[in-house]
Design a protein around this nucleic acid. Structure first.
Lengths: 335, 335
DNA sequence: CTGAAAGCGCTTACAG
DNA sequence: CTGAAAGCGCTTACAG
């Protein structure tokens, strides 16, 4: 790898001159510029990012911290984020949370030591409760997080899960469904995606003037993926007893499992029971019937997150530190 | 962030002493060690990786270059790789190939400038044809690639796709299938995964003493994902005309689509036609019937790849620069 | 056992 | 317009 010094040597100029010309600092003669550019190309010069970092500059590296739950959706989001970050000149490091949350701190310090310019905190299960409980977080650099602000001065992009459910209910009501059920993997903690589902469910029914019935919400025991017992219980409650004609599932995985159960029970989807998923994973289109689901709009998320990160990095006004993304119903065959 | 100097100041020792103790160099008194360790902890010291890199040491950063095709399988593989790399103390950067192959070089140079210790080249569609056609590749650091060696001195982990198909045919034959079809998205270039499928198909039939019939291979036009016309053509050829009682699909996505087609045709799976996928993506278990498929063994791949990388980095004997991974049939309901 | 010093490649005052 | 020099934080001979 060539260095500034090698270009200086080749051109007979000083290192300073070369450095400033390569960073487009004005005030140099065309001839000098030409010479430098030429030499840089010939030596296929690339600034050494370690040296730049050491000097105190930007590394151009960002890190994304993702959880283990729902890996598919996480990676879809990560892919979108990387795409946008790349287009803005950043590279992305991955941090998968491998086991306990104890390593979160480990990750953050590691990222900091590596001089990343910013951290995208996409680890949902962990819901920081403000700076006090998260000592050091705000000191660990520029953070943009998903759903929950990590610190008061950190950016945050929220997905409006509730709005997604409301939209889906509006859609179901339009096609004549009145007995709409909700099935979620867990009750969810305050402000988390699963609780937002319930909120959206209530709001959605209200907006459609459908009476809310508590028993039309089935709540799992927290298992991320349903087993036979979960599915049986869900089916008994929502289909057998409540006679639901439509069910909003926790996510696409639950929805796909539900499709299987309904088929075994000789019920037609969507004629007897309509099913709506969440996440719009790749396989939603491959289900039979193809899954109608709620798309999280990862691209919009990614763009907002990177914008927010750049604002944070340049220390812009801390006014628009929160952006809300609206999910969108994707209609296929199951509802 | 604290530095060696700050620890030296705090303990009254020299920077050298602190540096060497923290890297476990022997020959220091217990008391001195204690003091240094204590101070390091108190100041929550982390070596600055930019400085280390600049000095010429390892960065502890690796990069993975992945393609755009079959993103699901790519990310599954990436996740496994990151897991293993993390457990060995490395962090992973992502490089998604965003559009043209023209950027490959760009990526490699960028990685090199960032001082990554190694590059995992997982971009399948690009099949390097030796060092001549890939000028500079071997000079760009330690590379371990998937399926195709990138340079003569670079490590390579091959997935034995053919063996996977052979295994599946053996399994199908055991359950009485004789009219086995193969459906692939494209003919494939020399040595690529799709050509390997055909090779494995022929070998598998031979091993089971089933006569090879050319018309039982359906070959698509290269489209990664099937559309209605592809599926119709596939169905006509393999099911209608050839009366296949089992079909090996290009991958799980094709298999899932095929399940839909078969159901519409009122054919039972696996009784009338058995279906075998490839990749064992997460949704394979969610298909109805659940997909029997061929698992690529990402964990074994990841372990082998990281081992190879470490060998390459330490310049060990260039003898075992190639490792072959055997895929494995995962039996569910569709076959 | 311990310490002073060079140098990795850059950027940025500062002096000419 | 151009150049000599300091310093980011580390590791590694080298001298004591």
């Amino acid at each position: 790898m060539s260095s500034l010094a090698s270009i200086a040597r080749a051109t007979g100029l000083a290192v300073t001159t070369v450095s400033e010309i390569l960073r487009n600092k004005p005030g140099y003669s065309e001839t000098t510029k030409q010479k430098v550019m030429e030499a840089a190309r010939k030596l296929s010069y690339r600034p050494n990012s370690a040296a730049r970092q050491l000097r105190g500059g930007r590394s151009g590296l960002m890190a994304a911290l993702i959880g283990q739950n729902n890996p598919q959706a996480n990676f879809d989001r990560l892919a979108a984020l990387e795409r946008v970050a790349y287009s803005r000149g950043y590279r992305m490091m991955i941090g998968q949370i491998h086991n306990s949350d104890g390593r979160l701190d480990e990750y953050l310090r590691d990222f900091a030591a590596r001089g990343v310019d910013g951290i995208f905190w996409l680890h949902q299960p962990f819901a920081p409760r403000g700076e006090d409980q998260q000592p050091g977080v705000s000191r660990l650099g520029n953070i943009v997080s998903l759903d929950h602000p990590v610190a008061s001065d950190a950016g945050c992009v929220r997905i409006d899960y509730a709005a997604g459910i409301e939209q889906a209910i509006a859609y179901l009501a339009r096609s004549g469904h009145k007995r709409i059920g909700l099935a979620i993997a867990a009750a969810g903690a305050k402000g988390d995606p699963l609780q937002a589902r319930q909120l959206g469910y209530k709001r959605g029914l209200l907006a459609q003037q459908i009476e809310f019935q508590k028993d039309r919400i089935w709540i799992g025991d927290g298992a991320e993926t349903p087993n036979a017992a979960h599915l049986q219980s869900l089916f008994d409650q929502l289909v057998q007893r409540q006679k639901c004609d439509a069910i909003l599932a926790s996510n696409d995985v639950w929805a796909a499992e539900l499709l299987r159960v309904l088929r075994r029970a000789k019920l037609r989807v969507p004629q007897d029971v309509a099913v709506v998923g969440f996440d719009n994973l790749m396989f939603a289109a491959l289900c039979d019937p193809a899954l109608t689901t709620i798309d999280q709009q990862h691209d919009a998320f990614a763009t907002a997150a990177v914008n927010l990160m750049e604002q944070t990095m340049t220390g812009k006004e801390a006014q628009h530190r929160e952006v809300v993304i609206q999910p969108k119903v994707v209609v296929r065959e199951s509802a």
